[in-house]
């Protein structure tokens, strides 16, 4: 673990891998819930780092990290969000070719995996989901689409993501869900927040509403 100063009021804590990042993020949330974390404006987990922005004393916080022993992530209700998906994406055949399997194997493998929201970014409510494993990594499309419809389920690198609203995007699209991922009227506004467990449930045409 390494804490890098970021400007005057932030720290970027760098960890060994995604698992260590998840554990450290869980520990931060545990300490915040417990009231033992100094005030911090934003806690932003990412692939290998957690950013703490809006600290009064980043250097003091960094010094204190040496004494941290990451306890096992507190049994945060292991709630799993099930997302019904029609595996009808325009890139399903390409993904099957990249994986060296048939299209129905893509559906089988993807819907059998247990995913976790590693972090959010790119757009409000867009989660980067891990769980497929490195061997199913795929490149982004060489030419991004100018408009990817809301609810599109895509793959890029080791991640799966669901577009909360229509936007440009270069992910390989394998399916569609009708579940609303982002609604500012709802609390939390994002269905997929960092740490949330996710499963994709295959459904037939016209039955992907949850």
């Amino acid at each position: 673990m390494r804490a890098l100063p970021v400007g005057e009021r932030a720290l970027l804590v760098e960890l060994a891998d995604g698992e260590a990042t998840e554990a450290f993020h869980a520990e931060l949330l545990r300490r915040r819930a417990e009231g033992t974390l100094p005030p911090v404006g934003e806690i932003v987990p990412a692939a290998r780092t957690v950013l703490l922005d809006g600290l009064d004393d980043p250097a003091g916080f960094a010094a204190g990290l040496d004494g941290w022993r990451s306890r096992a992530p507190l049994g945060r209700a292991e709630e799993t969000v099930a997302l019904p998906v029609r595996y009808d994406g325009p890139d399903l055949a390409d993904v099957a070719a990249l994986w060296g399997v048939r299209e129905d194997d893509v559906v089988r493998i993807h819907s059998a995996a247990e995913f976790r929201v590693a972090f959010c970014g790119f757009a409000p409510g867009f989660g980067y989901l891990t769980g497929l494993g490195e061997r199913y990594s795929v490149p982004r499309r060489a030419t991004p689409r100018t408009a990817v419809p809301a609810g599109s389920v895509g793959l890029a690198g080791p991640y799966t993501g669901v577009y909360p609203r229509s936007s440009p995007g270069g992910w390989q699209l394998i399916g569609t869900t009708d579940t609303v991922l982002w609604d500012p009227e709802r609390a939390p506004a994002a269905l997929l927040t960092p740490g949330t467990r996710v499963r994709f449930v295959p459904v037939d045409d016209g039955m992907a509403a949850s």
Binding site: E42, V44, L51, C120, F122, A123, P124, A190, T193
Partner: peptide, 9 residues
Amino acid sequence: RYGHAHLGV
């Protein structure tokens, strides 16, 4: 908007 950066806001 403060406190929503972890949701991509």
